[in-house]
Design a protein around this nucleic acid. Structure first.
Length: 829
RNA sequence: GGGCGGUUAGCUCAGCGGUAGAGCAUCGGUCUUACACACCGGUGGCCACAGGUUCGAAUCCUGUACCGCCCACCA
């Protein structure tokens, strides 16, 4: 039994004060430190590195609390917990911020300036053209700026009491991450899983980079069907195609219709003639054409969409790329082999109106050109454009961070071969446990529908460079087919400033010399290695062995196709493993109108003021109340309830720990009954926590604490716990109360780390020999198994208490009023 | 067009084969030596709709309707 001086118990609870105090003590005592030498099965978390250039919002607090609750529970089970924190600073969002903040642009060929530091750009600086800096310097600026953002996140995480080991911090652009990412590339190359290829690729014309299928989204866009009349070579015939992209007419390389379409059957094998440019193109059948859509016959361009790419490949059509990497129509020459024309001069004249226009402008202009009968390919003196464009809304592919539609542009890119591994990827997903289970379908669905290999090269700067150079032959041709890879021991390398083995700087970009790869990896190429970055992988094989595969990947559902998918792919390709045993998917925080919170909608809630007004424990209480996978509408009322619970725990602890008596074991039926109920709670809550069902566990624990403990059991025994004339009963009650509180504090500890630590410190810390409740053992059925029976007595006593309360309430009397006469009778069953 | 969730008290949600639940809100009562930031008692629901299985369905099956998410070849 714990006996303490009641005057040492606090009279009120100040959450902010307690938070600061315990943060400091936990850090000093290393309560959350990962001990690689510790015995026991480790619990390893693949913590999501937040995008640090984004803003803080309640969604972060929500999902990170879920992970922390799980980690704390495992720590109390005695597992050594590996819980790192990373920062995702690598990538486009940071680039954009740094460009604006310092008013700089990265240029690959600018020489590095060692030690370059810049202040935030002032107005005068901004009037000048942006300063050009080397990639090395640009990365330094990115690091400098993201360091500030990381601090903001770190203080939020600490305030939230995330039990991460801060010595395990990393960022996705730091040296270790760059080295691991480049190692990954070398390993994939050795195993034959990567290749580079010049091919049409989805391209963002603003960022001027290739993008991968996973980063593409459909957006509804208003467009219009343009009915355009084509000629048929050597005949007077004509037909009309409907297109939403008339500006691609100069890029037309074929015409296609369904093989069974009676309207066009006789045209197959003939050549169509495009209006304006009078280029003859093959007419071929394809089952991919839908007779119901438009006029049933369509033009194939290089490239309007993914199907165009497919037809171009299958039918071996010529390449007529007119849209350049900047999204403008390039200068092309008609009458050449690439752009044949029956009337090159007229074609060139028409094209002159379009060259150098943006896609949008070109579309406007070509519509006007198509109204000119002189452009007819049918030789009937009618304008090619039939009628007026017919508006429609249709889905168009965008880069998820982009503003203009994607184009398919032929460029050289690096790919990871995945299309031949779909079966294995799906099977890997089956071996992982998804929480909730139905999220597995998202993964399977995406993997089954994968259309192209993973494009991993980006024409950007703030990223991990490819550890690759290419020989330049005597004719000045870059031999992309014979890349020179960096040596593993030299990683990380930047091929734009470092040399390949056996070359000198004077040979850079020279005939007979070499050239460095300018591209950087897709950020997901690095992010998909978070388990390896955290464990150290080849740099620390022993640690990796112990930590990998990890136990838990927490993440949100919209990045299953990227982060989860690519991480699974990497683990499979590198080590033929699954990266983790469990994936826990947190839902979204919706605003009270059930809309997703987003910056653009301006409905984002920042977490700091919530922490200020309700305290960290209350915010965690709200977060932990949501089950995995379930979206939750933000509701401030729940925070109030959390705050109330914290206060109640404070007061209940004060009550229990202020009592004393003879140290006798619980023996009275009521006390035993309470402990029996408690044991049942521990059994259920433990099972739920083991299955990551922390919200259900919290609900049960809270219900028990409030309903069975404070409002009934404590009320029933507090008289006896102070009785002078019943030492045995008093000892039994005080001990049962203390045993109960000790278990309840520990059950609440993963959810409410501050208040439980505070109350634990009053007596249990010394008595149990465990200074922190967060290192104390999770309550077990075994520790309560010595107390049996009394369940019926407990139920009867609670029912009697309620009956007395009811009688008093009906009489309008105070609950404290003495009862003169009470007769208890067994109720008829 | 395909896949996956959801639809339960005014609100936020739990329950997922055996007499409809919690918290908040609402109405009424109580200062009771842990807590009035508390406690006690009450009001409130054809569990979206329609069929089916079952002795019994909010719970299982089949459809339908909304809401949301993910995905799909943009003519």
């Amino acid at each position: 039994m714990i006996t303490i001086d009641p005057t040492t118990l606090g009279s009120h609870f100040e959450s902010r004060e307690a938070e600061e105090k315990w943060d400091r003590r936990w850090s000093e005592a290393g309560v959350y430190r990962w001990d690689p030498a510790a015995a026991g099965q480790p619990f390893v978390v693949d913590t999501p590195p937040p995008t640090v250039s984004g803003s803080l919002h309640v969604g972060h607090v929500f999902s990170y609390t879920h992970t922390d609750v799980i980690a704390r529970h495992r720590r109390m089970l005695g597992q050594p917990v590996f819980y790192p924190m990373g920062w995702d600073d690598n990538g486009l969002p940071t680039e954009r911020r740094v460009q604006n903040y310092f008013h700089v642009r990265c240029e690959t060929h600018v020489p590095p300036e060692p030690g370059l530091q810049l202040p935030m750009a002032d107005d005068a600086t901004r009037k000048q053209p942006p300063r050009k800096v080397s990639r090395a310097n640009f990365i330094e600026l990115c690091l400098a700026l993201t360091r500030e953002d990381e601090q903001a996140f770190k203080s939020l995480w600490q305030r939230l009491a995330l039990s991460v080991d801060w010595s395990l911090e990393y960022s996705t652009i730091d040296e270790r991450a760059r080295r691991i990412a480049q190692l990954s590339f070398l390993d994939l190359w050795k195993k034959g899983h990567v290749y580079n290829l010049e091919a049409p690729t989805m391209w963002d014309v603003d960022f001027r980079t290739a993008v991968a299928q996973a980063e593409v989204e459909d957006r509804p866009v208003r467009g219009a069907f343009h009915d355009i009349r084509f000629g048929v070579e050597g005949t007077q015939r004509s037909f009309v195609i409907s297109t939403t992209r008339p500006e691609l007419l100069p890029a037309c390389v074929g015409v296609a219709a369904h093989p069974e379409d009676e309207r066009y059957k006789d045209l197959f094998g003939k050549r169509a003639v495009t209006p304006l440019f009078r280029v003859p193109v093959r007419i071929f059948p394809t089952t991919l054409a839908d007779p119901e859509k438009g006029t049933g016959i369509l033009m194939v361009c290089t490239f309007g969409d993914a199907t165009d790419v497919q037809w171009w490949r299958e039918e071996q059509l010529p390449l007529r790329q007119v849209i350049g990497p900047d999204g403008r129509l390039a200068g092309v020459r008609f009458g050449t082999e690439a752009f044949p024309s029956l009337d090159p001069q007229a074609a060139q004249d028409f094209y002159g109106h379009l060259a150098d226009c943006s896609v949008k402008e070109a579309q406007k202009r070509i519509v006007e050109l198509l109204r000119d009968p002189a452009g007819s390919a049918a030789g009937d003196g009618q304008a090619p454009l039939q009628g007026e464009p017919r508006p429609l809304e249709h889905p168009v592919k965008f880069f998820e961070k982009g503003d203009r539609p994607l184009e398919f542009i032929t460029t050289r890119q690096w790919f990871v071969r995945l299309m031949d591994k779909k079966e294995r990827l799906i099977e890997a997903g089956e071996r992982i446990q998804w929480h909730p289970e139905f999220m597995r379908a998202r993964y399977r669905n995406w993997t089954e529908n994968l259309q192209i290999d993973w494009c991993i090269s980006r024409q950007r700067y703030f990223g991990v460079p490819f550890p690759v150079w290419y020989p330049v032959d005597q004719d000045g041709r870059v031999r992309h087919d014979r890349p020179i890879l960096a040596e593993q021991k030299d990683l990380p390398v930047d091929p734009t400033s470092q040399l390949p083995p056996g070359f000198t700087e004077s040979q850079r970009d020279q005939k007979g010399g070499f050239t460095g790869e300018n591209d950087v990896f897709d950020t997901w190429f690095t992010s998909s290695l978070t388990p390896q970055i955290a464990s150290g992988w080849w740099l620390r094989p022993e640690a990796h062995q112990k930590l990998f595969p990890m136990d838990l990947r927490p993440q949100s559902h919209e990045i299953i196709r990227t982060w989860a998918f690519y991480t699974i792919a990497k683990a499979l390709l590198h080590e033929d493993q699954i990266p983790w045993k469990h994936v826990g998917i947190s839902g979204w925080v919706l605003d009270p109108d059930r809309k997703k919170m987003s910056k653009s909608k301006g409905n984002v809630l920042t977490p700091m003021h919530l922490l200020d007004s309700y305290g960290s424990d209350a915010v965690r209480y709200w977060s932990a109340g949501a089950k995995l996978g379930v979206d939750t509408a933000f509701d401030e009322k729940v925070l109030k309830v959390g705050k109330r619970l914290v206060l109640k725990l404070f007061n209940a602890s004060k009550l229990v720990l202020s009592m004393s008596g003879p140290d006798l074991p619980p023996s009275r039926p009521l006390d035993l009954g309470f402990l029996t109920r408690l044991r049942e709670l521990v059994e259920r809550a433990s099972r739920q926590m083991d299955g990551f069902e922390f919200a259900t566990a919290l609900d049960e624990i809270e219900r028990f604490f409030w309903g069975s403990f404070t409002d009934s059991y404590a009320e029933l025994v507090k008289g006896r716990a102070r009785a002078e004339d019943d030492p045995e009963g008093r000892g039994s009650a005080v001990n049962a109360l203390q045993i109960g509180l000790k278990a309840l504090l520990r059950l609440f500890a993963p959810f409410l780390p501050y208040i439980t630590e505070e109350c634990w410190s009053w007596g249990y810390a010394a008595h149990e020999g465990q200074p922190s409740i967060h290192r104390a053992p999770w309550p077990t059925v075994a520790e309560l198994s010595g107390f049996a029976g009394g369940g019926a007595d407990f139920a009867a006593a609670v029912a009697a208490l309620q009956a007395v309360h009811r009688a008093k309430t009906q009489a309008g009397a105070s609950v404290g009023r003495q009862v003169a006469f009470l007769r208890l009778a067994a109720s008829p069953a």
